[in-house]
Simulated assay, not measured.
Amino acid sequence: LIEIVLFIVDSGYSKHMMGNLKLLINFVEKFLETVKFRNDQIAPILRYGDLVQGAVTIKRVYYVKGLNHNLFSFGQFCDADLEVTFRKSTCFIRDLKGNDLLTGSRGTNLYSITLQDTISPNPICLMAKATSSQAWLWHRRLSHLNFNTINLLSKNDILVGLPKLKFIKDHLCSSCELGKAKRKYFHSKLTPSSKRRLHLLHMDLCGPMRVASINGKRYVLVIVDDYSRYTWTHFLWSKDETPEVLIDFLRLVQGGLQAQVRVVRTDKSTEFLNQTLHAYFA
């Protein structure tokens, strides 16, 4: 026996609906809203699922108990970026590239689509589109993952908890823009900052290091001569030793090279801005 599933294309309903629970899979138990029939009877929508018929998969079809006809929502197709076209005797559901996904016929004043008659060499998946807030929420939850990959995870049901919706990128993510931004390179100086050795010294104190040296020292004082790029490295037990070690270094290097240190450039931290060094440089 071949079961023929007939859907009426309706512009008055906001969601796809049907009354046959046996045809739906991947249920989500959730109260959404209520539906009012023509006889004023009200029925709640307590769940929705996916309708699979052959090569066709319709996502997010609402189950309404007591509904005698299956309804395709004109609006839900449009929200999924699909085109719904009506002719005198037929109707078409197309993607944005103009490919026919579903074809229906007209009987009296109703347009209907029979899923059993739909023949396609490739699987067709009609997914409801996620709202903008849903799309960007999952974009952030997944560490700013690109939307093509998010849709792939959703379509193949790879990630637990990710709703089976079509996620649309409707604007640029400011965090992604900053993350991909590149800083412009500084242009090379035409004239060097220093004219000779020891004219300008750069220095910084690093630490405390997680791994101590052989002698148990966890701080490193690095001094670089701007003119020659020559580098000196001193290991310290604590940052309090910086003024004493620096003064001894300056006396030693100035005497050995017979040159005077003119400028010292630091990050202005407390190990360099203190009374001991202030008195020495005064």
Rank of each mutant, 00 (worst) to 15 (best):
S193C: 06
S193V: 11
S193Y: 12
S193W: 06
S194K: 14
S194E: 04
K195Q: 04
K195H: 07
R196E: 08
R197T: 10
L198R: 07
L198F: 02
L198Y: 06
L200A: 10
L200N: 00
L201T: 01
D204E: 15
D204H: 13
L205T: 02
L205G: 02
L205F: 12
C206L: 12
P208E: 03
M209L: 14
M209N: 06
R210F: 08
R210M: 14
A212K: 11
S213I: 09
S213Y: 04
I214E: 01
I214T: 12
I214S: 07
N215Q: 11
N215D: 12
N215T: 15
N215S: 14
G216M: 08
G216W: 13
R218A: 00
Y219E: 02
Y219N: 02
V220L: 10
V220F: 12
V220I: 12
L221N: 15
V222S: 11
V222R: 11
I223K: 05
I223L: 08
I223P: 04
D225E: 07
D225I: 09
D226N: 11
D226E: 04
Y227Q: 02
S228K: 14
S228T: 06
R229C: 00
Y230P: 03
T231M: 08
T231F: 10
T231G: 02
T233H: 05
H234S: 15
H234I: 11
F235Q: 13
L236V: 14
L236G: 11
L236K: 14
W237E: 01
W237L: 13
W237D: 05
W237Q: 08
S238H: 11
S238C: 06
K239A: 04
